[in-house]
């Protein structure tokens, strides 16, 4: 089971994680804006996440944290 948490207020919408995710599970939330005016990242299908950590590694702002039991 994978637990995915996103600190939306830290996200700058750079999309590096979206580019890095091998399973293409990430995208910027189309309608939500954070305090800084960026569309924060969101995960479309948490179940499909294999916790490879690519998104975590490429995120400059450690917005994402992933725990896989």
């Amino acid at each position: 089971m994978v637990k995915f948490s996103i600190k939306e207020e830290l996200c700058k919408g750079c999309e590096l994680c979206v580019r890095a995710c091998p399973k293409k599970l990430l995208q910027l939330s189309p309608d939500k804006l954070n305090e800084k005016g960026y569309h924060p990242v969101m995960i479309t299908d948490e179940e499909a996440c294999v916790a490879c950590g690519s998104c975590f590694r490429t995120c400059p702002d450690t917005v994402l944290s992933i725990v896989k039991e």
């Binding site: 830290l10 700058k12 916790a51 400059p60 702002d61 944290s65 725990v67 896989k68």
Partner: peptide, 29 residues
């Protein structure tokens, strides 16, 4: 076996000022 990706204690909680997508943030980590 639990896998955990979360920020190391050796980085502060101060939000980094770098521009979106700047490599500095990654290198700091």
């Amino acid at each position: 076996m639990a896998i955990e990706y979360k920020q190391t204690q050796l980085l502060t909680d101060v939000p980094r000022h770098y521009c979106p997508g700047c490599g500095h943030g990654i290198i700091h980590r």
